[in-house]
Design a protein around this nucleic acid. Sequence first.
DNA 1: GTGAAAGCGCTAACAA
DNA 2: TTGTTAGCGCTTTCAC
Lengths: 332, 332
Amino acid sequence: MITMLDVSRQAGVSKATVSRVLNNTGQVKESTRVAVFKAVEELGYRPNLLAQALANQTSNTIGLVISNFDGPYFGRLLRQAAQLIEASGKHMIVTDGHDTPEGELEAVRLLIDRRCDAIILYTRFMEEPALMQLISQHPALMVINRDLPQARERCVVFEQQQAASEVVNYLIAHGHQDIACITAPINTPTGQSRLAGYREALEQNNIAYRDDFIAFSDSSIAGGYHACRELIEKNPSFTALFACNDDMAIGALRALHQAGKRVPDDVSLFGFDDEPSAEYLQPSLSTVYLPIDKMISTAIEQALRLSNGEIVEPVEPFVGELKVRESVINRK
Amino acid sequence: MITMLDVSRQAGVSKATVSRVLNNTGQVKESTRVAVFKAVEELGYRPNLLAQALANQTSNTIGLVISNFDGPYFGRLLRQAAQLIEASGKHMIVTDGHDTPEGELEAVRLLIDRRCDAIILYTRFMEEPALMQLISQHPALMVINRDLPQARERCVVFEQQQAASEVVNYLIAHGHQDIACITAPINTPTGQSRLAGYREALEQNNIAYRDDFIAFSDSSIAGGYHACRELIEKNPSFTALFACNDDMAIGALRALHQAGKRVPDDVSLFGFDDEPSAEYLQPSLSTVYLPIDKMISTAIEQALRLSNGEIVEPVEPFVGELKVRESVINRK
DNA sequence: GTGAAAGCGCTAACAA
DNA sequence: TTGTTAGCGCTTTCAC
């Protein structure tokens, strides 16, 4: 590998001078500037980012931890993040948390060890105390998807429960009383909040919560499919179904179809996330749009500010937006 | 930040000794081992990976460049890659190539500058000469999705044309003569190969290639939708449609439905990629399964070997597997 | 068994 | 305007 020393020799100057022209720092005579660039060109020199980071005490990177790599959800997020981070002149390092709390923790640790200037953790599994501790270990760590009352300025959150409640209220307002629900993983705050929103809406409308209208699932397409079959078997009388994410709604759609139930004529279906395919399904899927682009942007901006030592304000919670499409019918 | 020096002082030993116990290198008295670990614990010391990499002349990372972050396709790939790389004790750095040749090139450059031990480039846009040059610049760079005759051992490829041809041959064998096609981006080798496979099958069966059965598209759901509408407008007489990826098939499915054409009764539909949702669509989508898991695994293993200075053999091209589902009907 | 010292490739005072 | 020098945090000879 060509080093700066090689360049300096080729150009007949010192390393310091090479560094100066490459970083545009300090005054350099035009002729030597040219000579250095010429040498760089001839040798095909490229700076060693690791060495640079060590000397600069800043790696010029921002780390991102997501729950997993599958699915369209994080894809959208990563795309936006990559763009923003690049625009800020930094580089992005992504890691996944293997859908476990330990994995998430380990991933963040790694990013810290890599000396990322800022870190964004999209958590689904870590508990509050562990998160608080992480936050205390890195001055520019932002957490997405978990509200930490002790550190509001470090969180970017989405009003899960409210959105879920709006969905179910919408269904009720359109004449549905028997509303089933397929949950997201119930051991996660997200899964819990969405179910809580469902219950909240029922309560607000004095509709009894029934166990046989609930199927616990895992956010996957196959999971949604099986959960829906289970529901139909337990009690096929529901006229509406709230799947706590779009993937499960896709699975449920097929299960309903196979059971001879037409959507939306027999059963109205609601998803959550607004995946790219939602709009194109047959029938197009009603769902909740999550402003993940805005959320990740906000998190990155805030993290960047923190890494500059700036003082930051808490971020307002984000809210979802109902996308009502063909899969829901008015029964009134 | 706590450094090794801090630890050494706390333990009453030298940096060298700390390094020895942490890396299990050289003999150390048990009592001092314990002392060092105690100090590490007390101080919460974590080694600086950057410094380590610089001193070791190896970053212990393997870099991965993909075309973009959206879509389920690369998600599946990343998931598998992350697992494998982690299992090998290394860390993964992912970057995206922004769906442009320059982006791909820049992404690889960056990984080289970061001193990745090995690099995997899933290319869709770079041309052969540029790829050859990259390969010469990094001894452990593997290219996925482009065949370089000069460097077969650095490539992992998939028989695109053959698979596409099989699809169309299957349709023909099942009584279809009027087969339309929605292409993937035609400025990419993948797009070209799949279309070539389509033409090849027609030729083999003495069926004329007709311009009005072709719509050029962009691999997106929306693109598939619009392309299908265009096809129907140009010449609605096709009895089968080959969408060059599943996303476009999803879009086409809706367009067909809106045009009053039933799938598969009026039009048989084939996709490509075998996305997770393919099996659950209504009707379930016939498609081609790509062994991306195996492909990425192979690429990683090969890259790892290269980075160890081992000599490697060329890799056999991978082939797809037809997944025939409800969306295709026999018209004979 | 342990420490001192040099070096990985770069940056940044401080002199000259 | 430029070179010398001392680090950044770690590893690794080479003595002791």
